[in-house]
Design a binder for these strands. Structure first.
Length: 299
DNA sequence: AACCGGAACAACCGCCGGATC
DNA sequence: TGATCCGGCGGTTGTTCCGGT
């Protein structure tokens, strides 16, 4: 018998028993019951003694990402989305670290959210998801919109005591210290100026009033004066900006306003930013253009 | 009704660092 | 001190679902 055949023979006795692919309800039950009796950890032994034909890794993943009792399922709330955007700007793809700030959410879920929702927007805008262009998009439009949604939620849920709703986070927000902290850094923000009205001059709405410390944007260099095309203007401006990709930190940038933030119609074409799904895209095209001063639309 | 493509989610893979022997 | 094992992490792939044609 050749060595190769011997290997196959040995493997057939043990490894070929290993199951892969989706978990069955029976496997889930086995895992849940075993952990209920013996606790987590020692995953390889656990898999063996629980009678699961799975690797320890697979068991661990199944438990942590799906079966654990405190796992929160369903769409991410605007608060959670906002926190993810904020934390990602701080820490980059440190999914597990980000997940620690969102109780009940797994790193896998957050990672999937980023890849399917956030990066989708970048693709549709034809920009890199890690580019400064896209980061500005997030800061200028996505995050204010999320905050607006949170405010609306807050207003609705506290309609009987709506007087303070415009500046006070709802109980939903305050349940999570990280979200609460993020929001408190933003309570001075003038929501109307970034959500419901044409964009004010940059001087009137500073980035520091909108975003937490982690996202605060230093003073900006002069912006392009007379862009011949918005796309060109944007890319030219961006090329002057420093961006520290390694840590996903924001380098020197301007207070972001429409004069330096311009996307061409072509870039927006095909985008589904018109969707107003809370769990997905959070503003639509009309709103997008409404942010901008009329004179800036004459491209 | 069938097919197709994209989105969303679940699961796997490879690598790395720490613990233990 | 090196070898091995285990758990954790981020990236990638596979599967399912759903809407459009």
């Amino acid at each position: 018998m050749s060595d190769a055949m011997a290997i196959v023979s040995n493997a057939s006795e043990e490894e070929f028993e290993l199951r892969r692919g989706p978990w069955t309800p029976e496997e889930d039950t086995l895992l849940i019951h075993y952990i209920a009796r013996h606790g987590e950890g020692k995953w390889n032994l656990l898999a063996k003694f629980a009678g699961l034909k799975r690797t320890g890794k697979s068991c661990r993943l199944r438990w942590l990402n799906y079966l654990k009792p405190d796992i929160k399922r369903g769409n991410l709330t605007p608060q959670e989305q906002l926190l993810i955007l904020d934390l990602h700007s701080k820490w980059g793809n440190r999914w597990s670290k980000i997940a620690q700030q969102l109780p009940g959410r797994t790193d896998n879920e957050i990672k999937n959210y980023w890849r399917t929702r956030v990066q989708k927007q970048a693709r549709q805008l034809k920009v890199e998801s890690n580019s400064q262009t896209f980061l500005e998009t997030i800061r200028c439009f996505w995050m204010p919109r999320l905050i607006e949604q949170m405010e609306q939620t807050s207003s609705t849920s506290t309609s009987t005591t709506s007087q303070s709703s415009s500046s006070t986070p709802s109980t939903m927000e305050t349940q999570n210290p990280a979200i609460s902290s993020l929001l408190h850094n933003q309570t001075s923000m003038n929501l109307d100026s970034v959500t419901n009205k044409p964009y004010e001059k940059p001087n009137s709405v500073t980035s520091s009033t909108i975003f937490s410390d982690s996202m605060r944007i230093p003073e900006l260099p002069e912006i392009l004066e007379h862009p011949t095309s918005s796309t060109h203007a944007f890319s030219s401006h961006l090329s002057d900006c420093y961006y520290d990709m390694e840590g996903f930190n924001l380098g020197p940038m301007s207070e972001v306003g429409p004069s330096e933030f311009s996307l061409s119609a072509g870039q927006m074409e095909g985008s589904d930013w018109t969707s107003d799904d809370v769990a997905g895209t959070v503003w639509n095209m009309e709103e997008f253009w409404h942010f901008r001063k009329p004179e800036e639309l004459s491209i």
